[in-house]
Structures are given as structure tokens and as C-alpha cells.
Amino acid sequence: MDEARVLLDVKGLQAWYGESHILHGVDFSVREGEVVTLLGRNGAGKTTTLKSIMGMIGKRTGSVQFDGQETINLTSDRIARLGLAICPEERGIFASLNVLENLMLPPQVRPGGLPVEQIFELFPNLKERISSQGTKLSGGEQQMLAIGRILRTGARLLMLDEPTEGLAPVIIEQIGHTIARLKQQGFTILLVEQNFRFASTLADRFYVMEHGRVIDAFANADLAANMDKLHDYLGV
């Protein structure tokens, strides 16, 4: 994997919600074409890390380089236009938009996004419910919609925040297949997951977060050797 270049490089990232200091210097990187997973207990700062990279947190310092370009001082709309996209933890499906409008909402930021037909092929459920109100979909369908809509945009780095949260095993499996296929197609994916078994089938590398810092990292190949430590970190 060493030959692939670094697409996302995060160094000393700090972030605040108002007065509360949440990230205390996060360091990690993602190479082009990799699936990298952030692990960590509830409240470790995983979501905040994704939002900070995306520029959705007002106060942040340190360095976030995307494809060599510094983004720490850019607004989130400019960051998106560089080719990053987020699928938020709460899914963020819009109630006042129908399924098609939700799917078509994010503007194309670069060439190379999936055509809509291919997104419907990945998630046939969406096609059947195209004119339903977005929030009338089931949790699983909403998750598919939240992932599907960022595939259209041509973003090269997809950040997925707990895409399996609260979903049935069969849907988790479908989302797993989708992520694997996206990786095959060359997308780079930064995944936040609590579902460790799910992540272990997809990720090339793992970072473990605690109290707003990255405290450990290992490759999928070294997973077995790190299992005890990991159980400790995650408290499982």
C-alpha cells in the first residue's frame, strides 16, 4: 500500500464546540484507494473528527491536507468542492425533499461520480420509492439514500459515519457489499464504525481514538495480534 499517495493528511487537529475543547490534536492519514476506519468508544471524538475535516465545526486548528492542499481555513462548501463528501451519523435526509430530490441535492463537484442508474442498481429500494418524502423511508433506506447521494458528486474521499448504526443484519450486509464495491471502483473511504466485525471485513487500516486523540493504529493484517488491546480500548 506504500506506493499509493496520501490523499488525506490530518496533523494536530483540534476542534471546539463553543467553549468545549473536543479534539486535542488528532493525527492520521488516508492513502488513495484505502478504506480506513476510525474506532473508539462513544464520545471519543470520531464524529467530530469527520465534521472537522469537512469544515462543519466553527473553531478548529492544526492541519488537514487534502491531496496536498491545506483546508483548515476553508469553509465547508469550498472543502466539498475539492472532492470530499460526508454521510453524517444522523443521515441528514431532508423531510421537505422527496427521495429523488434528496438524491440529486448535492451538486457535482468533479467529474467521475456514479450515474444515477448505477446508484439505483446498488440500492434498488430507492428506485421504487423515488417520489416518497425522504424521511418516510425506513432507517435502512434512509442510510442507502444518504450514501447514494454522495456517490453522484464525484467526490473522491467519502466519509461514512456509522453507516450500520441501528440497521438489520441483512441491510448491514448490503451496505458492506456496497462499500467493498466502491473501494473496487477506486473511491477512498474514511469509515467510522462501532460495529467492529463489520469494519474488519472492509478496512485496510484502523485508527483508535480516545478523548479527542488518536491513540493507536494498525493494519488489518495485524488485527489478530492486536485483538486484546482493542477489546481494552473499546471496552467490549
Binding site: 469537512m54 469544515g55 462543519m56 469553509t75 465547508s76 462548501d77 472543502i79 466539498a80 468542492r81 463528501a85 460526508i86 453524517p88 441528514g92 431532508f94 423531510a95 421537505s96 425533499l97 430530490e101 440529486m104 441535492l105 448535492p106 451538486p107 463537484v109 454522495i150 458528486t153
Partner: peptide, 21 residues
């Protein structure tokens, strides 16, 4: 109009999709 409706609901996310909210 769909941008407008969406930004009314969740401006932060719409902006993170690349729209100058």
C-alpha cells in the same frame, strides 16, 4: 427550490455538500 428547502432544514449539511449557503 430544493436547495432552499434543504438549507431551511439543515444549512450546515447543505453547505457541506458544496453549496454557498
Amino acid at each position: 427550490g430544493s436547495y432552499l428547502r434543504a438549507a431551511t432544514e439543515n444549512p450546515t449539511l447543505v453547505r457541506a455538500f458544496g453549496i454557498n449557503v
